[in-house]
Design a protein around this nucleic acid. Structure first.
Lengths: 245, 245
DNA sequence: CCGTAAATTTCGCCA
DNA sequence: TGGCGAAGTTTACGG
């Protein structure tokens, strides 16, 4: 494809806020928070209506180079076709130099659909707060996101049926030994603050082998709870809310 | 575009390991580590030769849904065109249901170029090890990635010209109060271990306002060093290496 | 294959 | 606007 023709089509598409897909042979240079260079090769370049820029090689999940939403696009043409995407804060520039253009396509895309994600860690916390008995009978949450000194935040802080303090750490994936260590640090902070050692419970779908050892070692409890079960609880809760209105 | 025709082109492209770009109106469902649903809308779907799958909405850096490299792609056609991308470990399935196809393109892309990223945190460490005087005259590194008890790793551990121990923490971005606190924890660990308090230096392009307070408070030193300067030092070093051969 | 740390992380929430 | 923490994080690098 003719470079001049390509340049014109690209300029038009950007002006009319279309979703651009450009396939070609290009070099890429990036300068900003870091710096990178990428020699000549065939790639797919996407320029979105919001100023996002993505350059994808033939392999991998991540783009090899990119510019986040809001960047300003410039199309330059002399002997070669160059596309620059600039950002001011932080100051970054992405320069794409084409030696061949295989394809330029642009689309007006309409996408108003809602994206719904189920069972994040936040969802798990909500589910526990909505139905604390899934941790154990008589468990009463007191605070969420409680500050533990300067080392972090306790997911849920509460008391059990016997009145003992309980520190709950939630993970949507299997708990690691790192997670256990973090929880131990919270326990120590709470012990400093209240003068007595709290119970500590990791709530997660499972525990990694290495973490199981540490649970034993530090006297941390484990309560199995899957994100899926939390999603169910939230659905029940929503149904209830609607019923009560 | 005809759905049956599209299905055939997509199957062909996948068989011959081409880079696929499909633009159309689609619904998306994901089930795996989490779950998500996305209603009907216009999007760009990319399927890479290595089995990566990316679905991009008209805005944002991140794909709304995806499947990492190595997933198995299936193209199903009855009354609708459905593409499924499956992964076994962890078990995940991405299902894309098309109601319209605007465009199907596929490409044989050749990209053997080397990607070079300059001045990561690792590069900064290398630069300091290569030329310790950029920290201060007489600074001698002893160990890198030194374990500090069970709380983490010290970037560079060394001694100054007066023989005092020095703990160096490197950041490629401005240092935060969290970084200072982490360094303080290292200092305490080293003091426990050696029975004397080491000097502690944060090496970074700058410090956040909140961190500046804490530097004062804990007696932590700061040495300004930009990733860019480190990249220069590494270039000089490489030049030297070549010269010495 | 597990574990750890970094990332041009991005993204969302909240002060 | 900045700070903080999660993410279907991914990726790279050890052991």
């Amino acid at each position: 494809m003719n470079l001049a023709e390509a340049a014109e089509r690209i300029r038009m598409a950007i002006r009319s806020k279309e979703f651009l897909v450009i396939v070609g042979r290009m070099e890429v240079n990036y300068e900003g928070r870091a710096s990178s260079t990428l020699g000549s090769g065939d790639r797919v370049l996407m320029i979105k209506p919001d100023g996002s820029v993505l350059i994808h090689r033939p392999t991998g999940y991540e783009p090899v180079n990119w510019q986040p939403p809001g960047s300003k696009i410039e199309v330059l043409l002399d002997d070669r076709l160059v596309i620059e995407a600039r950002r001011v804060k932080p100051r970054e520039i992405l320069r794409i130099i084409f030696s061949k253009i295989y394809d330029v396509s642009s689309y007006k895309l309409r996408d108003e659909a809602e994206f719904a994600m189920y069972a994040t860690e936040e969802d798990m916390r909500k589910a526990i707060l909505m139905k604390p008995s899934i941790i154990e009978d008589g468990f009463k949450p007191i605070e969420r996101e409680r500050k533990a000194g300067d080392i972090g935040f306790i997911d849920i802080f509460g008391v059990d049926s016997a009145g003992r303090l309980v520190v709950v750490e939630i993970k949507r994936r299997n708990a690691t030994s790192e997670d256990v260590k973090q929880l131990v640090r919270y326990v120590e902070k709470i012990e400093e603050e209240f003068g007595k050692r709290p119970r500590a419970i990791i709530v997660a779908p499972g525990v990694q082998r290495s973490a199981a050892r540490e649970l034993e070692l530090y006297g941390i409890e484990f309560k199995a709870l899957s994100p899926r079960r939390c999603a169910e609880i939230l659905r029940e809760g929503k149904g209830l809310e609607r019923f009560l209105k």
